[in-house]
Amino acid sequence: MTRRERLHLRNGLLFAAPWVVGFLFFQLYPLLMSVYFSFTDYNVVHPPVWAGLDNYRELFFDDPLFWKALYNTLYFTVFSVPLSLVFSLSIAMLLNRKIPGMSVFRTVFFLPSIVPIVASSVLWLWVLNPESGLINSLLQQFLGIQGPGWLADARWAKPSLVLMSLWGIGGAMVIFLAGLAEVPQTLYEVAELDGAGRWAKFRNVTLPMLTPTILFNLVMGMIGAFQYFTQVYVMTGGTGSPMDSTMFYALYMYRMSFYYLRMGYASAMAWMLFVVILTATISVLISSKRWVYYHGD
């Protein structure tokens, strides 16, 4: 190691020290404990009892609801993450121009992210109401078709939740706007000199410059979607109804740990989910070396 490398290592660790210390103090112990719990029968009240691989065996071979919950969660992630990403980026693009009332628009698109969910859930129940809800009334009135049963129908419950999640893009939009503001105007000027049109500018300047924020929103979107919990808990009462179609992974895990007192089993579930998310994230990070461009490099 050269002197320079040593200096970098020392400085790097010094700057990261707050996080390292916090990790060792507050996070490592709970994480290690949950690894241990996953190999035990642990009912929270008594000390855990060693159970070897029993929990994992049951997960894989003896619990259809586990697979159902995993499927539901993957379904939600696969649809909601890309859709939210495209949607929030589109809105950020629309809001990144000089238009009258810009501040108002930006605030409006951020609004659903700050209205307390207990307050907005009531509205949602009406919007998705199969008989007199907003969406089905519009479908009936303008297209003359009978809308689906949304949350009441096992086939439509997950799409309903994906649709709902699109309202919560405010945070991603703000981050995209911050990213867009960083694109140096000079790059657009250069592109214009080369005769680039609107699309070419977006494709060759905006998109590459935005890749760091796209990476961020993609990774955080995935981590959030895999652990999707609060909205479904509020909207369906956390029962997985109708017919287990909204039994999401985190919801099932929550029921296991706090309703049925099977903290060991829930910990095994958590670690399986952890492996899934970690694999997905690392794949994205590795691929990002090819598509993410940092202006500072």
Binding site: L125, L128, N129, P130, E131, G133, L151, A152, D153, P242
Partner: peptide, 10 residues
């Protein structure tokens, strides 16, 4: 069944 589902959700 679908009518009942719609009704109970509505």
């Amino acid at each position: 069944a679908e009518r009942i589902q719609s009704f109970t959700r509505g």
